[in-house]
């Protein structure tokens, strides 16, 4: 088979705002997908020079090494407060608080609820993978009933430690937020939907509309103890029925 003509074009390439380095994430981790589509959105909106991200404490603590924009650390759970401080100083910048389920729904519940309730003009990307990843697989507020983790070795027992928390529905009781959507990244269709939601969340900020919240059901193969492809199926089969996907608010 003789070589085809040499000229071709890329119909899919790495986003410029995604730093060209290997990540520390495990194979099949949803963070990598969300980082990529976030970088794509930053490129498409042309806001690389105006974006400031706030990283959580958790697997994505090194977020600012991967997205090529100004970045700030935040103490565990406090990203919404740090983002509030940044956005109050730079009203014209696009500020993003990127958080995991321990960060947002355990230690940082108060900061998450109150930033949303104040209608702070930043955008939260909330990665829900139903477990604590960085610390090696402990129960998260979003751990499913009966799910086995390092701290629920016999399966999560709601009679003992309560039920998984649904962040979108929780925040949907608040008046101020302008956009609340739950997405997933377990297949191509849902990755594209997540990208659309993130783009909307950032556009809302650029247009000065208010606070946007995007929850992303994501895979954590290593700590779930199943391979990446099975993990994607687990999100669909077990998490999605409990965490209904879709838009809760779009003002």
């Amino acid at each position: 088979m003789e070589a085809k003509t040499a000229d071709f074009k890329y119909v899919y390439d790495r986003p410029k705002s995604l730093v060209d380095v290997p990540t520390h994430y495990c194979p099949g981790c949803g963070h990598g997908i969300v980082h990529k589509i976030l970088a794509e959105v930053i490129d498409e909106l042309g806001i690389r020079d105006d974006t400031i991200i706030v990283a959580p404490v958790g697997c994505s603590v090194l977020l600012y090494n991967y997205i090529d924009v100004d970045g700030s650390e935040a103490a565990h759970g406090r990203a919404p407060a740090v983002a509030t401080g940044i956005k109050r100083v730079h009203k014209d910048k696009v500020v993003i608080s990127y958080q995991g389920d321990g960060d947002l729904l355990a230690i940082g519940t108060a900061e998450a609820v109150h930033a949303a309730n104040r209608g702070e003009h930043f955008t939260t990307i909330f990665i829900n993978n139903a477990i604590y990843g960085m610390t090696g697989g402990q129960m998260a507020p979003t751990t499913m009933e009966n799910q086995i983790t390092k701290t629920t070795p016999y399966g999560r027992d709601p009679a003992d430690v309560g039920f998984p928390i649904r962040a979108c529905e929780l925040l949907n009781t608040l008046e101020a937020p302008v956009f609340i959507e739950r997405c997933a990244v377990y297949d191509v269709k849902h990755v594209l939907k997540t990208k659309r939601a993130i783009k909307k969340g950032l556009q809302n900020q650029i247009e000065g509309k208010g606070y946007s919240f995007i929850e992303v059901l994501s895979m954590c193969p290593t700590n779930w103890g199943i391979n990446p492809v099975k993990s994607a199926e687990w999100v669909h089969d077990v998490m999605e029925p409990y965490y209904k996907l879709g838009n809760f608010r779009d003002i």
């Binding site: 074009k9 890329y10 990540t23 990244v185």
Partner: peptide, 12 residues
């Protein structure tokens, strides 16, 4: 699109 590492480019 699904690749978590952005390790795949597509050429046409």
């Amino acid at each position: 699109i699904i690749c978590p590492e952005a390790a795949i480019k597509i050429i046409k």
